[in-house]
């Protein structure tokens, strides 16, 4: 005998599956091997496992740092920030905010920032090609395949060591300007001198900037004129070679 479906049946199921409300079998029929509450419990268990696996894949540096505490922390994160997208790739996007809200360490925040930058540039659209002949006068912008980070611990080095199977040295305090970028199908990172980072930051403007405008902007922002003047050419060559900038 069928029973009326409550208007909020989806919402009720979601709360049980997410572990927010207790497993209540009243809407379910049960089966040969499972009680009604056990039936919804299967989905609740799979929910935990699926979200842990996705976050481990998306945040390999942070979860390597957390070690045995990982599952408990990921479960707490998912309770606070359930997936709001059709893709699990976006599940970890609130990790930085969540870590800050709970007073996480600089190591944790740095690793999350690097992990999320790697994920973002991996799936970013390709940069619009640059024409070398017009480089001097064209409007240039930072490529979507490049993300700038400023790190207070050398999380980028720790992460690279940990993911390559090495035992990483403890993270050291630093003031690193790091660009995470995709080039020729691989994601890498690069530490930039402060003036080079200022130059790249100057290209973040929506309409882009010419080289001359970018230099002016970097100088107005406090970049060291001597450092900037000595290396503009090599830096722009590097930006072009690594696909850090694009035509606008």
């Amino acid at each position: 005998m069928s029973e009326a479906l409550p208007d909020d049946w989806r919402a009720r199921l979601l709360l049980m599956i997410r572990g927010i409300s207790p497993l209540d079998g009243s809407m379910f029929g049960g089966g040969p091997g499972l009680s009604p509450a056990q039936q919804i419990g299967v989905y609740a268990e799979q929910h935990v496992l699926r979200h842990r696996a996705a976050l481990r894949a998306n945040l390999p540096g942070l979860t390597a740092f957390w070690g045995p505490a990982t599952d408990e922390l990921l479960d707490a994160y998912v309770r606070a920030h359930p997936s709001t997208s059709w893709t699990l790739e976006r599940l970890g996007l609130e990790m930085g905010a969540w870590l800050s809200a709970r007073g996480a360490t600089e190591e944790e925040r740095g690793l999350a920032a690097v992990d999320l930058a790697v994920l973002a540039v991996f799936h970013a659209p390709p940069p619009r090609p640059l024409d070398a002949a017009t480089l001097g006068v064209a409007h240039l912008g930072r490529s979507p395949t490049a993300r700038r980070l400023r790190l207070e611990r050398d999380a980028h080095r720790w992460r690279a060591q940990a993911l390559s199977g090495e035992t990483p040295a403890p993270m050291e305090p630093c003031d690193a300007r790091v660009v995470v970028y995709r080039h020729e199908g691989r994601v890498r990172h690069l530490e930039l001198p402060a003036a080079a980072d200022a130059l790249l930051a100057a290209l973040d403007a929506e309409q882009g900037r010419t080289v001359a405008e970018a230099v002016d902007h970097a100088l107005q922002g406090g970049a060291d004129p001597d450092e900037l003047g000595a290396a503009i050419g090599p830096w722009f060559r590097l930006f072009v070679e690594r696909g850090l900038i694009e035509a606008r």
């Binding site: 919402a11 979601l14 989905y43």
Partner: peptide
């Protein structure tokens, strides 16, 4: 798979 902006990423059966 979800409702009201929350996604479970599971193939939940329909009534």
């Amino acid at each position: 798979t979800g409702h009201a902006g929350v996604n479970t990423h599971d193939l939940l059966p329909l009534p």
